[in-house]
């Protein structure tokens, strides 16, 4: 269709209405959910992780994660007793299809699932120039992909390598802690698919959440505490060699 000036004038009101809805955004979707009553995090129990890769696949299926990029991935550490701070780490295809069989030898092996730490003092949201990534009132670091201009500054600022630029959407992308699930009372896709309960969604503002008892009674660690990012993904039984 050839658009003449006359057509354009007729289109203007429609465009104005469309623009109005763009400005306003879509209305609240989960009416029974109050953001201020939650503060989300996750508990990962290294001693329970068997390296099956279920979480990685579930995440990709739930969130349409592009090939070659990961919102969550699993690393396999191999630490021998002579090189306690120099682990050998692999994560073939993010651990999506499991890991090669390891033979009994010197040293120890363990798996470390990784995901966005939903830091309370997140360096990624600090550096976003336009306010396209932010911490929601319930403590989840989210990205407004209709607003992100794809400068990748947040990708550089994340100490954990959890962010990437989506190859086709050309905006920053990362774990949302399955925000579309947890606001409906479901758990995240990775937790749902984890066969051993190594991953547990945790609501720190809910006094009945078992996380509180667990944190009190176990030796808990977060990744790169020296970065002072205040991560909300808590690890049980995490080895000191993990980066």
């Amino acid at each position: 269709m050839k658009i003449t000036r006359r057509h354009l004038l007729l289109l203007l009101p429609a465009a104005a209405v469309a623009w109005e809805s763009v400005l306003a955004g879509t209305p609240e979707q989960s009416p029974n959910y109050t953001m201020t009553e939650h503060w989300w995090g996750m508990l990962i129990d290294i001693s329970k992780c068997i390296g099956c890769g279920n979480c990685v696949r579930a995440c990709q299926e739930e969130n349409d994660v592009p090939d070659g990029f990961f919102r969550t991935w699993v690393e396999r550490y191999h630490v021998d007793d002579w090189h306690i701070t120099e682990p050998q780490v692999i994560s073939p295809d993010g651990g999506k299809n499991g890991f090669p069989v390891a033979k009994e030898d010197e040293g120890k092996y363990f798996f470390v699932p990784k995901l966005c730490n939903h830091c309370a003092d997140s360096p990624c949201t600090q550096v976003c120039p336009v306010g396209a990534t932010f911490i929601s009132p319930d403590g989840v670091v989210l990205i407004d992909q209709t607003y992100c201009m794809g400068c990748a500054y947040c990708v550089q600022a994340c100490p954990y390598g959890c962010r990437y630029i989506h190859p086709t959407k050309r905006v920053a992308d990362k774990c949302t802690l399955c925000y579309h699930r947890i606001t409906k009372g479901l758990t995240t896709a990775c937790c749902e698919a984890c066969p051993t309960g190594a991953r547990q969604l945790a609501d720190l503002k809910n006094p009945a959440d078992p996380i509180h008892e667990f944190l009190k009674t176990h030796s808990i660690h977060v990744l790169k505490p020296e970065m002072a990012t205040n991560p909300k993904v808590f690890y049980n039984d995490l080895d000191g060699s993990v980066r």
Partner: peptide, 12 residues
């Protein structure tokens, strides 16, 4: 040129 969405740079 390096932005994923140069048309949004005015947001800065």
């Amino acid at each position: 040129l390096h932005l994923g969405h140069p048309e949004r740079s005015y947001e800065m």
